[in-house]
Amino acid sequence: MTLLLIEQILNGLQYGMMLFLMAAGLTLVFGVMGLINLAHGSLYMLGAFVCAAVAGFTGSFWLGLVASLIASAAAGAVIEVAVIRRLYARDHLDQVLATFALILVFSEGCRWVFGSSPLFLTVPAVLSGAVTFPGGLQYPLFRLVIIFVGLAVAGGLFWLIGGTRLGVRIRAGEADRGMIAALGVDISRLYTIVFALGAALAGIAGALVGTLQSVQVGMGEPVLILAFVVIVIGGIGSIKGALIGALLVGMTDTMGRFLLPMGFAQIMDPAAARGVGSALASILIYLLMAVVLVVRPQGLFGART
């Protein structure tokens, strides 16, 4: 029982880290450019498809990973220049619609190029297998790697935002776009860089998750909505908020699915308990978000109102 619980906690952590990779890009783009980007999930999907296709072609997961990173960053830069740039001055409704249109284009485009049947990615031999913890718990190495990649990206982002010149500019752009443009920073190039950075993070997340589940059209959408839940809970524009929010959502979802059916089994018959428990578990994170927003409308770490 304890082992199972620890395993579920690790699963929640891994899920949370994957969500963080998605949410980090989303929150940066929203915080800096004030843009709601529904197409973020498409970049995640693109990353997974490119990784699976390249890995299938060359036989190397690592080449696939690099290719997915490049492809999603490039796709991000292209759509920023072609479409997204025209949306900064528009209201949220136009942003929602235009990026919804991008989802249609990306999803059907992927189906066109890669076919309708799902692709599969295998974990490279070095990272497959399980790690045995003291106490006897066995846990897949690859999931641990995802947790560490998430932590590394979080560290890297904190350093980037807090400790580099680019980070200073990004923060300045968040605070007052007119002022930093007046100070001579090329704001549109800065925006393209931020957007491509967010896209690359989404692409990595897609490639990593592609090894855990099948790679198919539409895989980005559930994750996208969860990533939105994460940044709304954490506070829009805050990397720290995205990290805390992602862990909170990952844990709540995983533990809810694990504990609720067991809890209900104490008071009703097992079949009904499974139904009620899983129904309730699936809405738990949305309840969490609603509660956070009603109590603290700007999110846990949000500065703006």
Partner: peptide, 16 residues
């Protein structure tokens, strides 16, 4: 078969 691809482009044009 990929009509949504074109629908997306049309929609994008309308919004922009």
């Amino acid at each position: 078969d990929y009509w949504q691809f074109f629908l997306g482009l049309v929609l994008l044009a309308v919004v922009l």
